[in-house]
Simulated assay, not measured.
Amino acid sequence: MSNITLFAMPGSCSRVSLILLEEAKADYHIQWVNLMNGDHKTAEFKQINPKSKVPALAIAGEVLTENPMIIKYISTQFPKANLLPKVDTGLAEYQQISDLCFCSSTIHPLVTRFCIPTFFAEESCATSVKEKALAALHEGLTWVEQRLADSTWWYGEQWSAMDAYIFWIITRLQRCNFSLSDLPNLAQHTENMLKRDSVIWALEKEKLANQ
């Protein structure tokens, strides 16, 4: 039996960890958590993750939370999968973590504000929240768009965990009618991701969980 369990919800940001585990061909178990039913608020789940969030990664009885650290852990445990580029200096490694934090702390909160503005404001103010999130998203994603102008993936021609995180961001936004008409490189990046085996397998597992 695997000593790795991913607590996840289909469509949520736990998709990033799911893709990485598939990419690494890891032996792991999935425990689906239905946020819409309030599973994350139960006393049972709070014993696993008192932050009441997914993803959470249980490793031999210990639980790791927060996307950048889960991603870093999976990358370190499965070095042959090359989930993050090998680097020569400590500073370069910190830069990789900084990239992941850009997704988690800068873009990710804006995704929620764009898709579910009523989480943050009364209905009368929701439109304003969404509009401000949209403006900030375009600013942040324009940088990503420019970075992808001359390469297939975030780190040039090497696929990485950053590409999985960017993919989740874009596909989550697309479910909320976010347009990529002004972001052709990101649109192509999404198409490229959808052809990758690890992504296909991860999406299939989410699909089965929703049935």
Score class of each variant (00 low, 15 high):
M1F: 07
S2N: 06
T5P: 06
A8K: 00
M9N: 11
M9K: 13
P10C: 07
C13Y: 00
C13Q: 05
S14K: 01
L18H: 12
E22L: 00
E23S: 06
K25M: 05
A26I: 04
D27F: 04
D27R: 08
H29L: 12
H29Q: 15
H29V: 08
V33L: 10
N34D: 15
N34T: 08
N34C: 04
L35A: 08
L35I: 12
D39Y: 03
K41A: 07
E44S: 12
F45T: 06
K46T: 10
Q47R: 09
Q47E: 14
K51T: 11
K51D: 02
P55Q: 01
P55L: 07
A58V: 09
I59V: 15
I59L: 13
G61Y: 05
V63P: 01
N67L: 13
P68G: 01
P68V: 02
M69W: 08
M69P: 07
M69C: 10
K72D: 14
K72Y: 05
I74S: 02
P79M: 06
K80L: 09
K80I: 12
L83G: 01
P85V: 02
P85D: 05
P85G: 02
K86I: 08
V87R: 14
T89W: 08
L91G: 04
L91F: 13
E93I: 08
E93L: 11
I97A: 10
I97Q: 11
C103R: 09
S104T: 11
T106E: 09
H108Q: 08
P109L: 01
V111L: 03
V111K: 02
T112Y: 12
R113N: 03
C115V: 10
C115E: 08
P117E: 03
T118W: 09
F119N: 13
F119K: 13
E123K: 14
E123C: 02
A126V: 04
E131D: 11
L134T: 12
L137M: 11
H138S: 07
H138G: 06
E139F: 12
W143D: 14
D150H: 15
S151G: 05
W153R: 02
W154T: 00
G156A: 05
E157S: 15
Q158T: 15
W159Y: 15
W159P: 00
M162N: 14
D163G: 01
D163W: 00
F167G: 00
W168H: 04
I170E: 02
I170A: 06
I170V: 13
Q174K: 14
R175E: 15
C176Q: 07
L180T: 08
S181D: 13
N185L: 07
T190Q: 13
T190L: 10
E191I: 11
N192D: 05
L194M: 15
K195L: 09
K195P: 01
S198I: 04
W201M: 14
A202F: 04
L203G: 06
E204V: 04
E204A: 12
K205I: 07
E206F: 07
Q211L: 11
Q211H: 10
